[in-house]
Design a protein around this nucleic acid. Structure first.
Lengths: 341, 341
DNA sequence: ACGACAATTAGAAACGTTTCCAAGAATATG
DNA sequence: CATATTCTTGGAAACGTTTCTAATTGTCGT
């Protein structure tokens, strides 16, 4: 066994061994051009010999930054969030930053705590999908943030950069598609109006009926939250009605899971008895008996853009807050069909 | 607008305002019992007044730890990894640690880099699902690790704690289930023998035939990697054979996605023409026309256990390396049926 | 070979916290 | 009431790096 237990070499050890000062070692590391080649050689040799690696704790301390960005999200098991994370991470990593994931389960308390902990020296910036868009405490924290931040698909009245999706237009298109297929009793199941995606989708849904001067099926709209449980409950309720809808829009990838569960349980045939439209690509949406008609968007681009926005701020940009919105597109699958007579 | 731009208060400011020494402030924070209530009051008041929060960079530096554990994984978008992460994170968070996620895309190079970066002051310990179980460079890094670590479902000849799954037994049971249903031409699609899950599943598969003294369908075994692309290619090849198998075990949740894609493309009816067995619960496995028969395991428990193992080490335990293995269980779904004649 | 100027280097201070030690205050003991 | 003992506290050192200033070395033209 090697003499393993000795503590790691420091920059001082390197200085001693290579016969230069600590300052020079530091510069050999961070600005090699500013040190004479001969010196650089000696330093590099010593570094090699001692297997030295700078201690990032000390670096963070001294340069007052961590080269780390917090990524706050309610559930990383949601493939959408995972994809956003990966895209943002790749972009950031390319620029020398890494992402620090905090999974909050969506509770206001945990979100506030996450923000608190991240801004006090754990991260240089924040990318967040906040669930408590209306929570006073969370809002206050966001307002007093010490580090730059970017919001994902959230809309608060603060000067904060945000990357958004045009859910409203996407929803209008999806609804119109169903109307053109002859559907009138169309149900919408989505998140509550307290967070942006819910709000916007409801708006878009309404808009489709307004454009056609048709009655808006108020009673078929179920907007509460984005969980699969809610999707299941809402769909079950709808399926038990005597005047069951002929189409359902499961607006949210978790919601879709619940809706399909309900459909399976009630033995409803898709699309013969019921047309379905989903949001966002997932394995399930792609494969469920056949591909489901869905409102798609480019998640990778959203993640990348959030990263870029934040990087600008980290480089000191003082522009007014930007809000970048991306479009969706309707992808036709086998789950939407003309209404049966 | 408030005078927002002033820099955050330090422990020195708190000391000055409350009229005590920095040492006392520090102890008020970390060991409130050791300071007189009156003093504590003054300090707390000052902290409140200044909105002081200790700078974690400085804390990490001084106490030479970060209360952070690295979680290294090839793809966080894999729901299995996400679930493991969440479970480990919850356990760790309860004990004051947080998890630092590093997504490596499975490349040996990135895995090595991740380990390097994490152990030099970014994390106090590591939880890893390494893909390059055989890569020399990775192995050397693991051997020389400065921080305690736990491997997930990987098996290397080093003194390292590990949390494993008994894939072999699970696979034997699944295969026997198919054999009992009359299947003989059973295909196995799984990861390569270079990483543990592949190895073990192959072993278990073989064992089922050995027990029955039946010929092992060597030509129906496709073991390469766990990607959905491989699943698709392997399944497509198998489906095109004249002596097409009557059952397939898609051993890996990504593989299942590819296999189902191939099945859909070849218009094969499940389970009438083909029985399918999957591994691990996913939305897809639960909902695909109906629930798929699968080899399940308790992912949460695996994540929790990894965290606990690591916590022990972080508290200084010097026991010999532990390897904890969890069982699987076969959950019957609608995708496995007697072989058609 | 000399001075002027640029390039390189040494050395010390600083970042904000924790922790150690010794001194001072409070309390208990006789 | 004096002294021993325990609690609190102040002050300074330390963690390992970066960065600043000043000093030294090197280069160049004449």
């Amino acid at each position: 066994m090697r003499s393993d237990k000795q503590k790691p070499a420091t920059i001082r050890d390197v200085a001693r061994v290579s016969g230069v000062s600590v300052g020079t070692v530091s510069r050999s590391l961070n600005a090699p051009d500013s040190v004479r080649p001969a010196t650089l050689g000696k330093v590099r040799a010593a570094i090699q010999a001692l297997d030295f690696q700078p201690d990032s704790r000390a670096q963070n301390m001294r340069r007052r930054s961590t080269l780390t960005v917090g990524f706050v999200v309610d559930d990383i098991a949601n493939p959408l969030h995972a994809a956003t994370f990966k895209a943002a991470d790749a972009e950031m990593r390319g620029r020398g930053f890494s992402l620090y994931l905090v999974n909050t389960s969506g509770k206001a308390r945990e979100e506030a705590d996450a923000i608190d902990m991240l801004q006090h020296g754990r991260a240089d910036g924040l990318i967040m999908t906040i669930n408590s868009e209306q929570d006073v405490r969370t809002l206050r924290r966001l307002a007093e943030l010490r580090v730059p931040s970017v919001l994902l698909d959230r809309d608060i009245s603060l000067e904060v950069d945000a990357v958004l999706t045009d859910h409203a237009l996407g929803m209008t298109q999806a609804t119109e598609h169903l109307i053109e297929l002859g559907h009138r009793r169309i149900a919408l199941i989505t998140g509550g109006p307290d967070i942006r995606p819910g709000r916007e989708r409801i708006r878009g849904f309404r808009e489709a009926f307004r454009r056609r001067r048709m009655d808006f099926p108020e009673d078929l709209m179920q907007a509460q939250n984005l969980s699969s449980d809610f999707g299941f409950r809402a769909a079950s309720t709808l399926l038990q009605r005597p005047d069951r809808p002929t189409a359902m829009i499961a607006a949210g990838n978790r919601i879709l899971v619940g809706v399909l569960r309900a459909i399976q349980q009630h033995n409803v045939s898709v699309p013969r008895e019921m047309s379905i439209i989903a949001c966002d690509q997932t394995d399930l949406a792609r494969l469920y008996p056949g591909p489901i008609t869905l409102i798609d968007r480019d998640i990778e681009e959203i993640g990348r853009t959030a990263a870029q926005l934040l990087l600008e701020r980290l480089e000191g940009s003082e522009k007014p807050a930007q809000r970048i919105s991306f479009p969706t597109r309707l992808i036709l699958g086998g789950s939407s069909a003309p209404v049966p007579r």
